[in-house]
Amino acid sequence: MSKVVNLNKVRKSRARDEKRREGDANAARHGLSKAQKDLAKARAEKARRDLDGHEVE
């Protein structure tokens, strides 16, 4: 005999697994460590300061 399966639980479980896989992929693609974020922010700030320093008044 076959085992009885609740199709709603299977469907919801499958949807949760898909969301988790998608979230993990997004985190790997877009996630940056705090050090990387700070470095990018510092570089952008320096570039802005350098550009402002070359401005002719």
Rank of each mutant, 00 (worst) to 15 (best):
Q36H: 01
V5S: 06
R43C: 04
A35C: 01
D50N: 10
L39V: 04
A47R: 08
L39R: 12
K12H: 05
K19A: 15
E55P: 00
A40P: 00
R20I: 12
R49W: 06
K12F: 11
N26W: 04
N26G: 03
G23K: 01
L32K: 14
R21Y: 10
E18C: 12
K34Q: 12
K46N: 07
S2Q: 07
L32M: 14
K9V: 01
D38T: 01
H30L: 08
V10A: 02
V5W: 02
R43Y: 10
K12M: 06
D50S: 02
K41G: 03
A28F: 08
R43N: 09
V56A: 12
R14T: 14
K34R: 14
E55G: 10
E45A: 14
G53S: 06
A42H: 01
A44I: 00
R20C: 13
A35E: 09
E55H: 15
D17L: 13
K9M: 04
L7T: 11
R49T: 07
S2G: 10
Q36R: 04
V56E: 15
V4N: 15
A35N: 03
A47E: 09
G53P: 02
L7F: 07
K37D: 02
K19Q: 10
A25K: 12
A15M: 12
G31H: 00
K34L: 12
R48S: 07
H30K: 07
E22K: 13
R48F: 02
S2H: 11
L32Q: 11
R20A: 08
M1S: 10
E45M: 09
K34Y: 09
H54R: 15
R43T: 13
H30A: 09
R16F: 10
N8P: 02
A35F: 00
K41L: 05
V10M: 06
K19H: 11
R11N: 06
D24K: 09
Q36V: 03
M1R: 12
R16W: 14
E22F: 12
N6I: 04
R14P: 04
E45V: 08
N26A: 13
A40N: 12
R20Q: 12
R49Y: 07
V4A: 15
